[in-house]
Design a protein around this nucleic acid. Structure first.
Lengths: 209, 209
DNA sequence: ACCGCCGTTGACCAAATCGGTCAACCCCCA
DNA sequence: TGGGGGTTGACCGATTTGGTCAACGGCGGT
């Protein structure tokens, strides 16, 4: 790709990236047209192909970008929180979810795009890239769990199942939400917290409530 | 639409309906081509337009069909179960989920299609149809809740939240599953049951365990 | 005032794909 | 042997596709 892309002001880069991710997130790689991406970004199609030689190149760059962005955010917030001694499962998970919602606000199409890219048949992704994402996901929950104080849970509760359940719920809510307005995102967060609170109240030992 | 469609053997009807729902479920109405539907069904495009005058007509028929199918299943199993005196929340919900998985096996693309149709912008659906689906969804959980024995729950637990949480999880699992093989569906069901069991064990009063 | 640079445009291309049509085919039953 | 109905695939004009390219406009330097 044309490195001059990075000389553009951040806003413009984001505009293009976000438009592309939203469009790619809405349908298949093949069915997503360069026209629609350009149109959404309010930019000429020529410009797109000036910075990215291919639709494919753009797509792969976006996937890489998305993974990196996720990792950065995770490192910056979760690891930092645990570094400062925060060890409560639900408290940290809530921070994680808030951060995720912030990301949705800044990159509205990112998660849909990543998920679609990952699960799409006849994927344009190399197996190596797919594995990388899977590893990142696996790794984040593992290190998260390793840093949390898990004896607060009642005996027999599988914390990993709790993470997964809340993640699934979050994904589900995100999937059924069309436009990510500020209020909508806030509503999502509130609903998430309701579930998390319910789980916390009943899965923690009484002395930790 | 051409009523002769219903003279076709059920298998053939299902073949066409399932192919169409899967294709429509994969992308927008506009971006879904009649060609791809025909191809997936192993049928000529001409035949499609022989039975349905329009892409639009096919789409609307499918939506109607999907809603009806859901209602039928719901009535047949859930209402019947409660009629025979089954009042346990999780037990009945599990039956519901099993039934849902059976539906996924028989109509692999149905839920994706319905969800996409419902949330798609510039929808081809009339507001009336959208409302109908929303009502069906709302109504099913309401009548479900009204027939279950809810004092088994500990005080302060919102059963509606439990339904929603498990539904979101189910949707999430379904969304991240590409091919609905028999084993895959079984795995989904097992995972669902793990969550449901966890919730049951900790949200029910001890005397009901 | 003039240049040259660079981000940007939109007209343009051949090729593919689109929704939809239609004459002709195949096969079964009379 | 003669339909008749389910089915096909070639075909239509219109649109859209990924990608190119000559030219524009504004700005900093001289």
């Amino acid at each position: 790709m044309n490195q001059k892309f990075f000389n553009l002001p951040q806003e413009r880069q984001d505009l293009i990236r976000n438009s592309a991710m939203t469009e790619f997130g809405d349908s298949t790689f093949k069915k997503t047209s360069a026209d629609s991406i350009a149109k959404r970004a309010g930019v000429s199609k020529g410009l797109l192909f000036h910075y990215f030689k291919d639709k494919r190149e753009l797509y792969l760059y976006l996937f890489q970008y998305a993974i990196d962005e996720c990792m950065n955010i995770f490192n910056k917030h979760i690891l930092k929180a645990s570094y400062f001694g925060q060890t409560d499962f639900f408290q940290t998970l809530e921070v994680g979810h808030k951060v995720k919602m912030d990301m949705v606000r800044r990159h509205p199409g990112l998660f849909r795009f990543v998920m679609r890219a990952y699960y799409e048949r006849d994927s344009v992704l190399t197996p190596k890239l797919r594995k990388k994402l899977a590893d990142v996901l696996e790794e984040t929950t593992t290190t998260f769990l390793s840093r949390m104080d898990l004896h607060k849970f009642k005996d027999g509760v599988d914390p990993r199942a709790v993470v997964r359940l809340l993640t699934l719920a979050s994904e589900g809510m995100l999937a059924e939400t069309g436009a990510y307005t500020a209020e909508e995102i806030d509503r999502l967060f509130q609903e998430y917290r309701a579930y998390a609170d319910m789980l916390r109240r009943h899965l923690y030992k009484e002395e930790y409530l």
